[in-house]
Design a protein around this nucleic acid. Sequence first.
DNA 1: ATGTCGCGAAGATCGCGA
Length: 281
Amino acid sequence: MRLATWNVNSIRARVGRIVDFAQREGIDVLAMQEIKCTPAQFPFAAFEEAGYHVEAHGLNQWNGVAIASREPLEDVELAFPDMPGFAKGHEGPDQPQEARAMGATVGGVRVWSLYVPNGRGLGDPHYVYKLDWLGALAQYTRDALARTPDLALALTGDFNIAPTDEDNGDPTIVPGLSTHVSEPERDAFRALEAAGLADVVRPLVPTGFTYWDYKQLRFPRNQGLRIDFILGSRAFADAVTGAAIHRDERKGDAPSDHVPVVVDLDTAAPDEDDDVPMIFG
DNA sequence: ATGTCGCGAAGATCGCGA
């Protein structure tokens, strides 16, 4: 199975380019973020004509996530447990959840398409929201893997965190002053790893960014960020056979500011009669 | 020049979010 994640920055503005990519690259499951529309506005037909089922979740022109899949999506969820909400100017409990998460099961894998809150600024309520949101995501991960240790779980999406200094090539993003690179955000990312997940792309694609701001010639200067990830549980990571970051998708007409991140999985069912036993670790 | 995008609402530009 070939699984991809892509912050598309509006599905309607570039649906042709996205479906073309999925078909050309043989993507079986495509987790999308920032679709920027409601399901009523989503261009389902373009995906269906290309052989994909799609589940979309969007409340307005902001955020929004979706998953397209060649096989039907099962057990779709539109939030993880205790996912915090946010409403500007209305800090406190009981804020409405945004359209930032979708979980679905396909090919034996529990896949999440996640659009982690940006944070906006180190002193901003949105930054507190970001850290709370990531904390609840880590708790979900711990609970899910405690309940089912051999679960093939994949958290994919735009995490809005550059986990190491090597993941930040944007000179305007400064440790100590900027979101995406602060220690609390990096701690929150490491907490996901401590919960039982691993970045399954970095071992196969050690360097390279996944996002370049539209402004200031960031892409021609290659001043980007690595902020889009596929984090997998042990059972998921053990099935990974390849990975790619499709930098070329930042080129050409009307690109998203993010590019797709792809992994290949060997999802052949274990065979009890196989002469060669499966060996882990 | 916070210099680019995308969206919606207003109304042929602006505010918001990133």
